[in-house]
Nucleic acid binder design. Structure first.
Lengths: 230, 230
DNA sequence: GTACCTTTGTGAAGGTTTTCACAAGCGAAG
DNA sequence: CTTCGCTTGTGAAAACCTTCACAAAGGTAC
């Protein structure tokens, strides 16, 4: 919907998701307002960073007071596209697919798996929690019927690109890819890669001594450093 | 082991993992040498980027010819800490833990799960594929006995920090965290967060219109853009 | 040995993200 | 109504990362 003056960087978006979670927690804790300093502490960033990030989206704070928790939460949720539910398709009903299906945080955050697709004839026809597994041959029809725009891609690397192409043709505009392959997609389609082996490899690099003697400066306790980041 | 002149950035390490995979593939395909241009095409980067990355680790190429595939593969594997096996502990034998345990890419890339820990008494004593699930009360002893330095943390967010502290005390220096919480760890310990809901949220931001009209410039075909990055 | 083609390695330039530092603004108290 | 303390919003500076462009150098052909 809304478009912003400057291009918003990926890091800003990721941090904003974290701000949103903290705001939800603060609301439950009964806070009315929150300062950039407190918000920063809770997500492990700096206060200046928080203010800069939020300022890219607009002007939300009150000088001398901070940010109104509920108002900022609502506005951030809207900006991040989380003020409504997203129907999501799960493609690939193997080990990873099944773990994703059961992952409680997706539904909690508004992402609801409404379709499951797999090419294995032995799986097609089964139901998980009331949702029938369809054949990938019915992919296009299923995606279109349910108005799915986001897909979880949990198929073997060898077929990932083909399935992705098929998804895009059917109208999917966002793919969360668990196969260890870089997907090629046309402009207008967003892909996030989740590459677990790669994550472990960056750890092994640090442990092997690549990151010098381990980790940034000790610094103070509060705004402490993370071991790694993105 | 080895330490490098300049601090190596996270992005460089991540790309280097990808270079390594491409080199392995090229070796199977029978290539003797590879140019930065070809390497770049295969991972979706630029040739200059590849050369810059590799130059941070040392001088490997031959002008006019490119890089010797096998030699570079070996050297990169060594640098990334992948020239030997890593014993890994899996903490949390729930849905995610079980998917991680079955994930074939870990073992393929030298990460071998040698211990499983869970606090649920109904799970303790079970065996997965010959590996017995131990109680988290035996965490320290198990970790130490097996010389584990890397742990997969797949426990609920509410207990993640406590378990992480315990892991660090027991000698773990690298944690791949699947709980949606930022972990606080002492200097010298590396943490990578895998936050699946957050990945979906960055997608929903783009779909909602945050990323302007979708995606970077179309540009040429070869060194094509990714929909998203890190 | 020389000429030519190819590709590396790398300073310098360009771009992006983070941090700094401070003026401006709001609320509360007197 | 004025003062004081606190916190935002934001230009400017610093740090960081990527791309450019070219000299240097290996290989090959003759």
């Amino acid at each position: 919907m809304s478009t912003f003056p400057r291009k918003i960087s990926d890091s800003t978006v990721r941090r904003s998701s974290l701000y949103l979670r903290v705001l939800e927690a603060l609301e439950l804790e009964g806070s009315d307002t929150v300062s950039s300093r407190v918000l920063a502490e809770r997500v492990g960033a700096t206060a200046a960073q928080v203010r800069k990030d939020l300022s890219l989206f607009g002007t939300f704070g009150t000088r001398g007071l901070g940010y109104e928790v509920t108002a900022l939460r609502e506005r951030l949720a809207e900006i991040l596209g989380l003020s409504h539910e997203w129907p999501v398709a799960l493609v690939g009903a193997g080990r990873i697919g099944s773990a994703l299906f059961e992952y409680p945080n997706f539904r909690e955050r508004g992402f609801q798996i409404v379709a499951i697709l797999d090419s294995d004839p032995r799986k097609v026809g089964q139901s998980w929690d009331g949702i029938e597994i369809h054949s990938t041959r019915e992919l296009e029809r299923t995606i279109e019927r349910l108005g799915v725009e986001i897909a979880l891609l949990a198929v073997p690397a060898s077929v990932a690109q083909g399935v992705a192409d098929h998804l895009v043709e059917s109208g999917v505009r966002g793919i969360l890819n668990f196969a260890p392959t870089r997907l090629r997609v046309p402009p207008g389609v967003a892909v996030n890669e989740v590459d677990l082996a790669l994550e472990l490899e960056t750890l092994s690099f640090v442990l092997e001594g690549g990151g010098r003697d381990g980790n940034p400066a000790p610094e103070d306790v509060a705004a402490g450093p993370e071991g790694e980041s993105r």
